[in-house]
């Protein structure tokens, strides 16, 4: 019995001098993998136009039926997105979302991307529905590069997403 006690204390002693594995969350945040699937973002093109064209393919692909898209026609004088169509409403119910990333796969313009943000909590169900204003990145955060996932797979995006490539 005594031996067993010393064996246990030995383990404790051993770990006392090792680097701790505990992360001091939330003061310290653990980095995630490149292909981690967290909270969605709606991306923009380099010129600030929304990438989302309101095609609803993400909603069609969504196995959890978490996405709602209501499309509308662009005003040619002040377009939201390149082309004729944009998403007037874009909502994701984060309580339904299972973070499978099918929406990202389905998106022809790489507009919806599951980013690395994983701190997703709500005080009520209503605020679990992220609206377009919450999902859309700031106008100066647009980019024209092929998304990393497609670069890894050595694939070019589908034609509608090539608009500013």
């Amino acid at each position: 019995m005594i031996g067993a006690i010393f064996k246990g204390l030995g383990t404790t002693l051993k770990y006392l001098f090792r680097k701790p594995v505990t992360v001091e969350y939330p003061d310290v945040k653990r980095p995630v993998r490149e292909r981690f699937r967290g909270r969605h973002q709606l991306k923009r093109f380099a010129n600030g136009l929304e990438r989302c064209i309101g095609c609803s393919l993400c909603a069609a692909a969504c196995p959890a039926d978490a996405i709602l898209v209501v499309p509308a026609e662009n005003d040619p004088a002040a377009p939201h997105s390149p082309g004729e169509r944009y998403a007037a409403r874009y909502e994701i119910n984060m309580l339904r979302c299972i973070y499978c990333g099918y929406c990202e796969d389905a998106c022809p313009t790489n507009a919806i991307v599951l980013e690395h943000q994983y701190e997703i909590s709500f005080y009520d169900r209503k605020s679990s529905v992220l609206t377009k204003t919450e999902l859309l990145v700031a106008p100066d955060r647009g980019h024209g590069e092929i998304p990393p996932i497609l670069q890894q797979l050595n694939r070019r995006p589908s034609p509608p997403a090539q608009i500013d490539l």
């Binding site: 309101g54 609803s56 909603a59 069609a60 209501v70 499309p71 509308a72 026609e73 169509r85």
Partner: peptide, 9 residues
């Protein structure tokens, strides 16, 4: 029906 919805919806 212009851009009102997708037909499968």
């Amino acid at each position: 029906f212009r851009f009102k919805a997708r037909v499968w919806e």
